[in-house]
């Protein structure tokens, strides 16, 4: 299945802005994070198709996964 991965802010550093990935059926968000070297605890917001998700959420063909790091400065 094909999933679009969108990274934001510092997650783009040394990675990419948006990419499509071929993943085995039944893959979850965690399976995407591992090859990207992003730990679940580094994520502040995780959206699948604009809705709240987490590392255990299962992905479907055509999904868009968006990942945001915590931005907390003032």
């Amino acid at each position: 299945m094909r999933v679009t991965i969108k990274l934001f802010a510092t997650f783009r550093d040394g990675r990419f802005k948006v990419e499509e990935r071929d993943l085995p059926e039944g893959s979850c968000v965690f399976n995407v994070l591992q090859p990207l070297s992003i730990k679940p605890e580094e994520i502040a917001i995780c959206f699948i198709n604009g809705k709240d998700a987490n590392e255990n959420s299962v992905l479907k063909d055509g999904d868009t996964l968006a990942l945001f790091p915590p931005v907390g400065g003032g």
């Binding site: 917001i45 790091p69 915590p70 931005v71 907390g72 400065g73």
Partner: peptide
Amino acid sequence: SRLFGRGEQGVEKAWGNPAFTP
């Protein structure tokens, strides 16, 4: 609470804050 309720240390500790962003 939805935006800031999870995630560990904010990335500003590593990236700092330059003049233009604030």
